[in-house]
Each structure stands twice: as structure tokens, then as C-alpha cells.
């Protein structure tokens, strides 16, 4: 019939690795200015962190009593602390912890938010009421306060910190997922699938969840940035990662006492925290703009 426009057969499905990398290079995500800026900040930090074990610097826990409180120099780019430990090395180790915390929290919050939010939004009724009552109670507390409370119950260390921050973040994800599911549930394509008697598990996995992922990813990257800040705050307060294990928060705390004599101990790791947070926020902002249908043509 008439409104046929012939298009060349699409071959994008079967391509070699070369084409794959070329496609990534051309991807409009990489041309987005905010994403570029984010990568410009984050990639060097990531690369340095990954290379930390092979860099010609002191190990993070190694002390050197002949080089205490050194000003930043070629040998110690971030200087040293009161025990002669290399701040750069400690900072990179802290970044590693930060990234583990950020990524784990985002994944845990994303996954559990997705499951619980989908169930609550899709089934409604009792399930919805039960889930949302708990969510509303959690949301009544600021997340840092909640995390402090949870850590004080669960104890300090990496795993409790991750769990505490995740638990404080999950309610937000449930809320977001549930609101998305509610609006998708009434869309015509759900009705269309119901007319062929598609089972509910099919509706959820094939029609609802794939359409909720993009906004959840954006929320996930914001949550990662916040989790890094909260972990730093907890460690700064002495509730997170315990010394001598370095974390950005406890390095800053260590240096706080010597701010007047050795500004670099607190300031430089602080700047790194700032850079990571800013980078992740730009990234999530860029991803959000990229995924916004209004910015598409």
C-alpha cells in the first residue's frame, strides 16, 4: 500500500569490534558537553586510583618518621601527615573505598527499589499500602541522620556503612519506581498486552520495567554521589571506615587538627571529594538531559 518508504536494510545488529568502538566514539553521549566535563574530571581520578599500586609512591599505610608533615613536593605530591604517610597514596586508597561505597549503594538501592516499587505500583492494594507506609516512615528522616543511626546500631566498617547508606536510600527509589509504574500501568500498550492474555510477570518484565530503567539510572548516579559524601561524612565523624584504613572522610578528620600547620592534609583530599561529587552530578545531569525525550529529535 501507499505509505511505504523504503529504507536500506539495517545492519547495525551484526558488527565487528572496530565498528563497535567507532560507534561509541560517535555516540551522542560523548558529544554532550556535561558528560564530557564529567568524564574529564572522573576519568583521571579513576585511572590514578586503578594505577595506585604500581605508582612510585609509598604504600598508604607505610609510615616514614623522617618525613613527617611534608609540604607537597615531587616525591609527595599531596604532602605527608604527622606519621609521615603519603597523602596522595592514602587519598587514592580512600577514593577506592568511596567508589566501592558509591557503586554498591547505587546498585543495592536501585535493585531493591526497582523490585519493591514495581510490585507496589503494579499490584496496588495491600502490598502497596504496606510498602509505602514503611517508605514514608523512612523518608521522614534526613538520610545522613538515618545512616548515622543505622551505623550506630550495626557498627562501623565498610559493609555496615554500605548497608546503612543503602537502607537510607532505598525508600526514595521505591517512590520513584512506583510512580513510574503507576503511570505506565494505564498506558494503552499494557491494555494491548492484556488483550492477548499476557501473564502479569510478562507485563512487568517486558513492558513496565524496560520503560523505567532510564530515570532509575539517573537517580542511581545521583545516589552514588550522595553515598560518597555520606560515607565521607560518617568517616569524618568517626562512624564509618576506621583508621588506619584510609577513607577520604577520615583523612580529612586526621588533618583537621593540623589545619594551621599542614593545610594539605585536609584540603587536598577534600578537593578530591568535591571533584568526585561534582563529576558524578554533571554525569547524572548529562545522562538525564540525554534521555529526556524533549532533547531528542
Amino acid at each position: 500500500m501507499a505509505d511505504i518508504t523504503l529504507a536500506p536494510p539495517t545492519t547495525t545488529r551484526k558488527t565487528g569490534f572496530k565498528d563497535f568502538f567507532a560507534a561509541i566514539g560517535r555516540h551522542r553521549g560523548l558529544r554532550h558537553p556535561k558528560i564530557r566535563l564529567a568524564l574529564l574530571i572522573l576519568v583521571p581520578i579513576l585511572v590514578l586510583t586503578a594505577l595506585a599500586p604500581v605508582l612510585p609512591i609509598q604504600k598508604p599505610l607505610e609510615t616514614n618518621l623522617r618525613a613527617m608533615m611534608q609540604v607537597p613536593s615531587i616525591e609527595h605530591p599531596f604532602g605527608t601527615d604527622k606519621m609521615g604517610r603519603d597523602i596522595l597514596s592514602r587519598t587514592l586508597a580512600g577514593v577506592q573505598i568511596s567508589l566501592v561505597v558509591g557503586f554498591s549503594v547505587a546498585m543495592i538501592a536501585l535493585m531493591s527499589g526497582m523490585v519493591l516499587g514495581t510490585l507496589a505500583g503494579f499490584y496496588g492494594g495491600m502490598i502497596d499500602r504496606a510498602v509505602m507506609t514503611v517508605v514514608d516512615i523512612f523518608l521522614a528522616f534526613p538520610s545522613l541522620l538515618l545512616a548515622i543511626g543505622l551505623v550506630s546500631v550495626m557498627g562501623t566498617g565498610l559493609v555496615p556503612v554500605i548497608l546503612a547508606i543503602s537502607l537510607a536510600d532505598v525508600p526514595r527509589f521505591i517512590r520513584l519506581q512506583r510512580s513510574q509504574v503507576l503511570s505506565l500501568r494505564s498506558r494503552a500498550f499494557i491494555d494491548a498486552a492484556r488483550t492477548i492474555n499476557a501473564p502479569q510477570s510478562w507485563l512487568m518484565t517486558r513492558h513496565i520495567v524496560p520503560n523505567t530503567i532510564a530515570p532509575m539510572l539517573v537517580a542511581g548516579s545521583i545516589a552514588a554521589a550522595n553515598a560518597i559524601l555520606i560515607e565521607a561524612s560518617l568517616s569524618f565523624l568517626g562512624l564509618g571506615i576506621m583508621p588506619p584504613q584510609p577513607s577520604l572522610g577520615n583523612i580529612v578528620r586526621d588533618g583537621q587538627t593540623y589545619l594551621e600547620q599542614a593545610w594539605w592534609i585536609s584540603t587536598l583530599p577534600g578537593v578530591v571529594i568535591l571533584l568526585i561529587a561534582v563529576g558524578l552530578h554533571f554525569l547524572s545531569d548529562g545522562v538525564r538531559e540525554l534521555l529526556d525525550p524533549r532533547s531528542r529529535q
Binding site: R187, F189, D191, A192, N197, P199, R206, H207, N211
Partner: peptide
């Protein structure tokens, strides 16, 4: 359905949309 812009899952290819009843 009435509104052809709302009656398809935007994340599915046309082939999958048409095949869905057969798959289910």
C-alpha cells in the same frame, strides 16, 4: 487502539510488537 503513539511499547521493535501475541 485509538492512539497509535501510546499503544506500543516504545522500547520494542516493530517485529517484536507484532510477534508478541505469538510469543505469549
Amino acid at each position: 487502539f485509538q492512539d497509535p503513539s501510546a499503544s506500543f511499547n516504545p522500547k520494542m521493535r516493530i517485529g517484536d510488537i507484532v510477534a508478541e501475541p505469538l510469543v505469549v
